[in-house]
Nucleic acid binder design. Sequence first.
DNA 1: TCTATAGAAATTTTT
DNA 2: TTTCTATAGA
Length: 799
Amino acid sequence: MPDAPPPQENDLLAGLTEPQLQAASHVDGPLLVLAGPGSGKTRVVTHRIAHLVREVGIAPWNVLAITFTNKAAGEMRDRVAQLVSERQARALTVATFHSLCARLLRQYGDRLGLKPGYSIYDTSDQKRAMKQCLDDLDINPKNFPPAAMLAAISNAKNDLLSASAFTQQASNFYDRTVAKVYTKYEKTLTKNDALDFDDLLFKTVRLMQQHPDALEELRERFQYVMIDEYQDTNHAQFMIAHALASGHQNLMVTGDPDQSIYGWRGADITNILDFENHFGNATVVRLEQNYRSTPSILAAADTLIQNNKGRRHKQLWTDNPEGDPVQVVTCGDGASEASWVADTFKSLNQGQDGQPGIAWGQMAIFYRMNSLSRVMEDTLRDAGIPYQIARGTAFYDRKEIKDAVAYLRTVANPADEVNLLRIINTPARGISVPSTKHLRAHALEHNLPFSTVLEDPTPVAGLNTRAHNSVAKFAATLQNWRGQVAGDTSLIPDPTLRGFVEDVITQSGLEAFYQNDTSDPDRERLANLGELVTSAQQFEEDMLLDAEREQDGASQTLSLHDKLLGFLERIALVADADTVQSDQGLVTLMTLHAAKGLEFPAVALIGVEDGLLPHSRSSESTEDLEEERRLLFVGITRAEKHLYLCHAKYRTVFGQSGPTVKSRFFNELPPDHINTVDASDDGTYFDPDPWGDTPSGSIRQPDGSLKRRRSLGQAQRGVATGLAADYPPGTIVRHATFGLGRVVNVATTGASTRAKICFNTAGNKTLVLQYARLERINPDGTTTSSSDTNTETGDDIPF
DNA sequence: TCTATAGAAATTTTT
DNA sequence: TTTCTATAGA
């Protein structure tokens, strides 16, 4: 039961409402805080930490707080620092699940046979490893796409199903193949001393299960555990939380079931819903008063989310003054939608009727898909509006950066074949694909690590002199770098991470290559590599600063090895939201997923259309649809004062333009709080039935001609039904590029349904139905798109 | 052995 | 529109 706050605590807990106070002053035992949007949840958590440290006398290093992003972790630490001393705040452990696990596995990994220099594989590393596995197993990636294999494996890992456990329960052909692939993939990662994202969690659970002494140490260390955004934890994270709390039971979780938006990633909403069952003696606090949004915005969110079945009722309310109604904006197309938002933000920025303007940094634009940011970006740039895009990985996804990082990884982890193979001939140094095959074959045959073979390529059969020399030279370069990292100061007296990264970029030949790259006249890629050097330097400075603070001034020198591992870990675990800078005076563009936990005075949501929100790939099952609704709920509730929900009548997606259907969620908003704006200019379009599902599919061109087009909504809705049944053999179809053809057969292999079609002009083609955008030709000669028969979702009612 | 080119396929959300 | 893959040519 919560302690009544002693009078002297008033300064710390003053200003908290009754329920906030109850949560913030709670000391021992399990605590569930069900926090509606904008209900002061972060305040409660930070004040509780401060209360524990300052008033209860808990040592800060005994406190563990888990947040959803690294940025949120940093902010939480900063906010606690304002309530306790800077030094105490430093001693707290505030991290994401993934970075906490990465750290624990460096510390305890030897118990699982894991070296401290292990690699963390991102999605593209995983894909490379997977392609290698499929190749080794002689499995056709057309039938078993790497991405689908990885998704299945990821799901298994999130449920803590090992490869052998998965194999045991695999019952059909497909699952048995996945099991084979999973087993091979695990073998590959182990051989490479590599973990994927899911492994970070999975291996930590394993560590706790198999090494009670380690778990005991961790329990001793983390006596007070807090987990934010608990509604988005998966089973593995649940197990970690419970393992840590199973002794002392001091587990505080905060979250909102209505904001669970990561179900597709394995998040299990029942973790939060069943918290009281897991802990019979749990204290439950509800934070339902909203301090963020106007009543209209809150009403919109609340009315919308009521449409989700099987959720706990929550009474959201606010004392905030009435503001403008929520604006539902109809635009002509994506470009005009973007300019409407830009114009509106401009006038908000200038301020109207004597009202002060809103700073650019107080405005945000959200979308369901990253690809929607492009038009918006161009428009903002042209309009001279400063903006930033939250895409943490974008920088590190660049080819030149990936290459440079692959060099660093190869240095840190000699076993990492995936990264080694990436750069063994990048830039070209005369080690061809056949040559690497010979090297690999030799390694396999003599059961040697690939890196050992590189160092002595003489006995490898099939290598010509040139390849042999190149390999030897390359191996020597690698050796030299590893020597530097291992601390051989005879090589470099005072090694900095910055200097090392620079050396690698130069000595690898990357610098020279991009210096002379004719396809990049502006030397942009070279500049990016420079940017990587800068970020290494930045990281180094931060790390030294942290170390100094921890050591209380006594500057302890960090080894290049530690700095390199830290840098690589940071690169691997950046989140999109991590790159958002506040107070930079920039309009923020981000996906709805990245927007979680943030708030802005003015918010515009673009692309609120069926097929985009809800997304076509997520509108099949009720669960998926409800998650899409929660996604919109999250978006709406980020807004404080001004909210614009925009959709366009026509949208260009992947270079194909077509009419759209406005989001069905518009029907679920409260009319009283909505103001509709028609900002579309219909002049150029022939638009017989803009909102119905009539498949006119025709667009009047500017020159007056009619052009037949497939709508985005139609094409994607067609996906929803069992397509195989819609295309029996013999069906005549039209393909955008191949023209007319006859369906020979349809088969579902692996994850996709493919149709073999004999085209009149293009011959036989096998196409994935899901993407082929086929048009079916009816026996009477009329053209019908596949979705016309799909009445299930064709009942759009004009808003 | 490497590179240029053309053609075809693939498009959610992310640690 | 972008990205990957296959293939031919240097």
